[in-house]
Nucleic acid binder design. Sequence first.
DNA 1: CGGCCAATTTGCGCTGACGCAAATTGGCGT
DNA 2: ACGCCAATTTGCGTCAGCGCAAATTGGCCG
Lengths: 232, 232
Amino acid sequence: MALDRSLIAGLPLFEGLTADEMDELLRGARSARYPMDTAVFEQEAEAHSFFVLLDGHIRVVRTTPDGHQVIVRYISKGEVFGIAAALGRTTYPANAIAAVDCVVLVWPHALWPHLSARFPVFGANTYKTVGSRLQETQTRVVEMSTEQVEQRVAHALLRLVNQTGRKTASGIEIDFPISRQDIAEMTGTTLHTVSRLLSAWEEKGIVVSGRQRVTVVDPHRLVELSEGRKDK
Amino acid sequence: MALDRSLIAGLPLFEGLTADEMDELLRGARSARYPMDTAVFEQEAEAHSFFVLLDGHIRVVRTTPDGHQVIVRYISKGEVFGIAAALGRTTYPANAIAAVDCVVLVWPHALWPHLSARFPVFGANTYKTVGSRLQETQTRVVEMSTEQVEQRVAHALLRLVNQTGRKTASGIEIDFPISRQDIAEMTGTTLHTVSRLLSAWEEKGIVVSGRQRVTVVDPHRLVELSEGRKDK
DNA sequence: CGGCCAATTTGCGCTGACGCAAATTGGCGT
DNA sequence: ACGCCAATTTGCGTCAGCGCAAATTGGCCG
């Protein structure tokens, strides 16, 4: 059962490919489903595949030797991930966990050199992705170096909302389950501090939140907080 | 006056190229000298070139709107830098400052697509470099999220020593001028705290340091500190 | 429908690291 | 050789945010 090119036709990652090329590219892939909270791949494991997320949200997490977890990023629909091959690695540098039920395309790791040579546009797009991730990650280093916890959490929420926000009656909701602990692991703080911040913000009408759920009501105020303006 | 291929023949970045290919690659380049403390390129500026460092050390610094500085990385001999083109950018994301007198090779930005296609090995090596920088930067995020200042500074020093250490009578010295302020900007702390740490470490015989100079005497103890072991 | 458990909230005390400020040092240019 | 200035050191007070702990909540499973 061949994969249909309509699966990927709209994605920026494959922009510039002809219909035939998409078909050929897909011939090397298979699709797979990962239920919520299951691992797509694990840190240090042999990188046998690379992936494109067709549907859902993936949490990429690094675990330290002493048991700390840090969320490296969330992957959204249409993005490549697990591209150890393109980075010159043979093992995955982090864990990838399905934040909701997910559908992915899977290519064998060994096909990367062939595919990136055969479809230069696809290769270039992928490398661009790596490039922007490097930029983002550096930005994050800058934030962690120069900003207070409140600003960092505000930034993180804004990023999530822009990346994956879903409009609702009361505001823009992050459209996958996310706990205080998760937000803490994205921002280098503790779930306690995140909880206090969200409570305070809810008091002020900036967000509404509950179990594994955050809705931003007043993005503008959040932007102000993220810039460190503390005025009332 | 053509550039001689012996300039780059030994560098891993150009590994896999034939002598003729190196000559051809160099035909697109020119060399330039940057005295200590001058800028090779500046943040937000149009990315007209990309570079390979032939000699010296380059400090890559991001400046925030509110005037904070963060050192993104140090570039050592033989590395590419300023490769905005490969990342799909048209401006530089940071400043590059010569930490000592430097010699660099310069290619016009516009040549990148051609060169990476013409010399796939060179392209692949460059992308690998980007990949490892992404890994490193993520590691840094993890450190900033989970470690105390003392551990982070210890890690930073160890990295510098491994990357650019020069053996001396008393230990391994970082072979370019580096201030307390610089170390602070690498680790997300203040020059005061760095100064206190170095003083304490000097007391214990782990390092020797002076003006813009740091020598690691006992790397082993420093590794212990970087792992958080605080035992006497 | 009731119980169980994970997620969240909140109080309290502590402290690592910062901010401010002043003193000191070392090296470089004239 | 001297003076100037940037780099460094160090003391002191403060506080943001953590660690610990206990209470509360909400939803899912049986």
